[in-house]
Design a protein around this nucleic acid. Structure first.
Lengths: 121, 121
DNA sequence: ATTTAGTACTTGGTGATACATAGTACTAAA
DNA sequence: TTTAGTACTATGTATCACCAAGTACTAAAT
């Protein structure tokens, strides 16, 4: 176990949520997403992003259309489905609740549990 | 893929961090930790908690001592090592940076990237 | 004394998924 | 025709939460 791995795990947990958030704001193709994630300091690699988008699409949260490009092969432009929007709203709540819980837990404070009943006999 | 799984992934990413935070506040044994996590709405099961503590101990972040109990088998009481404190501080920063990044990303706002250069030709 | 219930810790198997790496395919310019 | 840049795909590996079953200890009930 190393710290980088733990940090990676932390980031991993919110990848889907962040990507749904980006797509919710407008039609994008994978490189747009990678760019925005990078700008937010949440780097994501091709080998992670593409399978993740496929999973989200298979789950019915996304749909896409092929769009020709002059600079290379065609691009998959993704948009959110109604189902995806609902899922995003739920994840948004989940995130907020979790962020609140973690902030509370990690605040420096006298903790109720430590002051009673847990001392060894 | 279902939503519960995604929510579980989100929680998974911060488990180690939260547990380190709890141990940092004082000597505890696994049931204390589970109880505090539950109180924070971040439930953790035995099959998750015990291996995780073993990993953290093997990484040098924790040490423990056996303490007899009158109500059952002896308990492993965990405390943090110096190395563990340093790791915790790093994870604390990681968490804060990530939480900020996610909040920024998921805020409803006109995004710079969507307004230029990403439209298809 | 033996059984039962409660508590504490351990172990093995499964599934989900990020990551690393390599590969395919398309366009445009040298 | 080759090279470089871009876009998408596929495979193998490692990590880790979860599930389920198991071991072990104590105290109370029978």
């Amino acid at each position: 176990m190393d710290l980088q791995n733990t940090q990676s795990q932390m980031r991993k947990g919110v990848l889907e949520f962040c990507i749904l958030s980006i797509i919710q704001k407008g039609e994008v193709y994978p490189s747009d997403i990678a760019q925005q994630m990078k700008a937010a300091n949440l780097h994501i690699l091709e080998g992670t992003l593409y399978p993740l988008l496929t999973r989200l699409k298979n789950a019915g949260y996304l749909s896409y259309r092929w769009v020709e490009s002059v600079t290379g092969p065609p691009r998959k432009y993704f948009v959110m489905t109604e189902e995806g929007k609902q899922a995003y709203d739920i994840l948004f709540n989940t995130w907020q609740e979790m962020a609140t819980a973690v902030s509370t837990l990690t605040k420096e404070q006298t903790n109720l549990f430590n002051n009673e009943s847990t001392s060894a006999e």
